[in-house]
């Protein structure tokens, strides 16, 4: 069981000693039970930090933003930046380092174990509480405890945990500078890829119909892209104009930019967007499930990325986020690769 005081003490100590210039973590939110990401820079702010079942954000995203900020401001980092990382957050950090987005020594990872539990899906909680509005959430062993106006309600983890956590095999952040909580790696309430396996019992025709309907519903708010730590490109294929133009970019270059995807949120364009994104995440997605959590119209995006992840695992024995020094999926080959063309 993680004691929040340990997280606060660790962060305070690191900031006081100047070992980190900031710590990315979570603090209480202003709109109900959900916490919010925060970047603290002074030791006395450490007491703001919280750790509860709504710490679902993948904070690696804010490492990416810090890196971008430094690059744009042409600043050097100085001391490393600290980050509180769950198992999935840490895997995302590993992928980013593997891709040289930042160096290992630039990040101080305060690992927090999900200890076989995980974070909640708010829609599942809402369904279980039947109208009662939770104001706070807490870990309680195999259960989660919710404070409501009608008193404390306890719900089994199985009923309210996010799907990604139900299937998680690595709730312990293996890559860390310091780790809090127990390494209960391997405990999953659902089999890996269980949601995907359930989905794939449908026929091809049913699946195609399903995805057509889902992509028809997409409003292209790009929250799935924005929340993804792996979507760090300065310029994305879906942006309406060139973001990465420089003064020397010619008018012709700008005018001739190919618009792969139109602005219209219609099925054809939406499918192209989501397929492009899924392919770009193959071998990189660590299944933090944030894309699915943030989607305002509940498109089950994890299914797409899980599909790619399972392909990588089954065909190439590849697991994203396992090793900083290891080769990446798409930039490596094996002598025993099943495809003849590669040999």
């Amino acid at each position: 069981m993680i004691n929040i005081q340990d997280i606060r003490d660790t962060a305070r100590d690191l900031l006081a000693k100047g070992e980190v210039r900031a710590v990315i973590g979570w603090r209480a939110g202003s709109r109900g039970m959900a916490v919010e990401p925060v970047v603290i820079t002074a030791p006395e702010q450490a007491d703001e930090l919280v750790w509860d079942p709504t710490c679902y954000h993948n904070l690696a995203l804010h490492l990416v933003e810090d890196r971008k900020f430094l690059a744009h401001a042409r600043k050097t980092a100085g001391a490393p930046i600290g980050i509180i990382a769950k198992g999935c957050d840490a895997r995302a950090i590993v992928v980013l380092m593997q891709e040289n987005y930042f160096k290992r020594e630039d990040v101080y990872i305060i690992g927090v174990s999900c200890e076989g539990s995980g974070v909640i899906a708010e829609w599942k909680v809402a369904r279980q509480l039947d109208g009662a509005v939770p104001t706070a959430a807490a870990f309680a062993g195999d259960e989660f405890a919710f404070a409501t106006a009608a008193g404390e309600k306890r719900l089994p983890a199985r009923e309210v945990m996010a799907d990604r956590c139900l299937e998680c095999r690595n709730p312990f952040p293996k890559e860390h500078n310091v780790a809090l909580g127990e390494d209960k790696t391997g405990r999953a309430l659902d089999a890996p890829f269980a949601a995907l396996a359930r989905f794939e019992t449908r026929s091809e025709g049913e699946r195609w119909e399903f995805w057509q309907r889902q992509f028809e519903r997409c409003i292209r708010c790009f929250a799935c892209r924005s929340v993804c730590p792996m979507c760090y490109c300065e310029e994305c294929v879906v942006d309406s104009i060139n973001i990465a133009v420089a003064p020397e970019t010619t008018a012709e270059e700008k005018a001739n930019r190919i618009r792969w995807i139109e602005r219209s949120a219609v099925k054809s364009e939406n499918i192209t967007y989501h397929m492009t994104r899924a392919i770009h995440l193959a071998g990189r997605c660590v299944d933090c499930g944030e894309c699915e959590r943030v989607c305002p119209v509940n498109i089950p995006l994890r299914l797409l990325n899980n599909k790619m992840e399972r392909e990588a695992r089954e065909r190439f024995g590849y697991e994203p986020g396992a090793s900083i020094g290891g080769p990446s999926l798409v930039a490596s080959f094996r002598d025993d690769d099943p495809g003849a063309f590669i040999r």
Binding site: E36, P37, V38, V39, C221, F222, A223, V227, P296
Partner: peptide
Amino acid sequence: ARACIGCGI
């Protein structure tokens, strides 16, 4: 805006 991810929700 520190936590803002720049989505359009």
